[in-house]
Amino acid sequence: MKARGHVLKYGDNVDTDVIIPARYLNSFDAEELASHAMVDIDPTFTQRLQKGDIMVAGKNFGCGSSREHAPLCLKTAGVSCIIAKSFARIFYRNSINIGFAILECPEAAEEIQEGDVVNVDYDSGIITDETTHKTYQAQPFPPFLQKMIKANGLVNYVNEKKGTKA
């Protein structure tokens, strides 16, 4: 699996309340949620975002609530991948559980700039900034999580394991 896109860059501690504000949580329609993504921190986000774009952020991305609406709305809005210095743990779990690959790589998160074109190879964890021609090695996923991402999320993983429905 690979991703390639332009970078939208953010700072530290981007919390779930700004990724998708609570006032929109009485809906769980993914498309509707996606239309409000990042509105409180970056009102032009959904207009600027092109399908496949990559988010780069500082530490503790996705801190705050357990709302799976947060990774879901970013994935649905068209974000292909998030590279951050670190992720808040529930956001990390939720992303993997919905088959949204996210990578921790402090060096890449520091150096890659807004607007750069970046290429990500999930299998090897190699991140290439095509604008600056620099490459970075992200922490690869442990095999258990790789299996889950390949299954496109926890639901399929459970069903495969149980051999039941779906």
Partner: peptide, 10 residues
């Protein structure tokens, strides 16, 4: 611990 919706469904 807190988890998300896919976790809770599982």
């Amino acid at each position: 611990t807190g988890v998300g919706t896919t976790d809770i469904a599982t």
